[in-house]
């Protein structure tokens, strides 16, 4: 594996090996010495052509804990905001000797374009491309679910996960549907029909328009951020109606199974898709997701960058 562009790039075995690696690396993050020498001398560029504080910081922390040199190349104040093309940016990064580029971009497929082009030779890690995918987020979500609910199994067989909200525009949803189903979980998407893409019936998951019908028999519920612009685009009439049918509130929290967990990729719109008591309640693992994000991203960087990819035809060696 040279790049991480989509969950489709991963076999089930690959995905589990990332989760297992993250689990070992989490120990380091918990220990007194948070820095490992593993990626010393490697240069990693955070190419963030779209605002995203938390994903950028998470990757940066992961890279630094592995002793990589990190260059931040964000949209504000950089040449990206001045209309420089992806090609020119990539060639610049190549000239600077980047071993890996972590890219966040508003265009679906930007990461794949970077990887498939001959513009640069390093690894490309997709940190969210348009409305396509966000594989590291799905991996950290799977990691979190496994930790809480798998009872020691290395996959998610038998678990039921609801993903609720703006599926149409959500890269988190796309990556999670692919990954969680790959790991054996049953995924159900819950959204108003306007916020489900045409063609969603081909995805490996179930569809529901009714949160209350679903909520009592899921092990985990993942709330997606709903952007207020969607209202003016007529995806739903107004915020109040959206919250009433698709928001997570204390009544719905009470309807959940014992032990079921509440997740959110952040940033949250408190009061819209999730109420404060749901976000901060006992079932919530939202803060933990952030911590797990660093471990997962360390695992991704380790597996992509520590070894020599020329020998990596057959995956991970032991």
């Amino acid at each position: 594996m040279k790049h991480l562009l989509s969950i489709n790039d991963l076999s089930k075995v690959d995905a589990i090996s990332i989760l297992d690696t993250a689990q070992e690396l989490a120990r380091v993050s918990d220990g007194p010495m948070k820095k490992l020498p593993t990626l010393r001398g490697r240069t990693i560029v955070n190419l963030f052509a779209e605002d995203s504080t938390r994903t950028r910081i998470s990757f940066e922390a992961a890279a630094k804990r592995l002793s990589a040199d990190v260059i931040n190349f964000s949209s504000k104040g950089s040449s990206i905001s001045k209309g420089e093309s992806l090609k020119d940016t990539a060639q610049t990064l190549q000239a600077m000797g980047a071993d890996a580029v972590i890219i966040r971009h508003s265009a679906s497929g930007a990461a794949q374009r970077l990887a498939d082009s001959k513009w640069m030779s390093g690894s490309v890690i997709n940190a969210g491309d348009g409305t396509h995918e966000h594989p590291s987020q799905a991996l950290l979500d799977a990691f979190t679910i496994r930790k809480h609910l798998s009872k020691g199994a290395d996959d998610l067989t038998g678990l039921r996960v609801a993903i609720v909200g703006d599926v149409l525009h959500s890269r988190v949803a796309r990556s999670n549907v692919l990954l969680l189903s790959k790991l054996g979980a049953q995924v159900v998407l819950v959204a108003p029909p306007t916020l489900l893409p045409v063609g969603v019936e081909s995805w490996p998951c179930q569809i529901s328009y009714d949160l209350d019908e679903v909520i009592a028999n899921v092990d985990a519920i993942m709330m997606l951020r709903i952007q207020l612009e969607r209202m003016s685009e007529m995806y739903f009439p107004n915020a109040r109606e959206y919250s009433r049918y698709f928001g997570l509130n204390s009544d719905r929290i009470r309807a959940m199974k014992a032990g079921a967990i509440v997740m959110h990729p952040g940033p949250m719109n408190r009061g819209l898709e999730i109420t404060a008591d749901a976000a901060d309640g006992a079932r919530s693992v939202i803060v933990e997701q952030v911590a797990n994000g660093v471990s997962i991203r360390m695992a991704i960087l380790y597996l992509l960058l520590a070894g020599n990819q020329e020998f990596a035809e057959t995956g991970v060696s032991s």
């Binding site: 297992d20 690696t21 380790y302 520590a306 070894g307 020998f311 991970v316 060696s317």
Partner: peptide, 8 residues
């Protein structure tokens, strides 16, 4: 760096 990525 002299070998394929190793599992931890």
């Amino acid at each position: 760096r002299m070998r394929a990525p190793r599992a931890l």
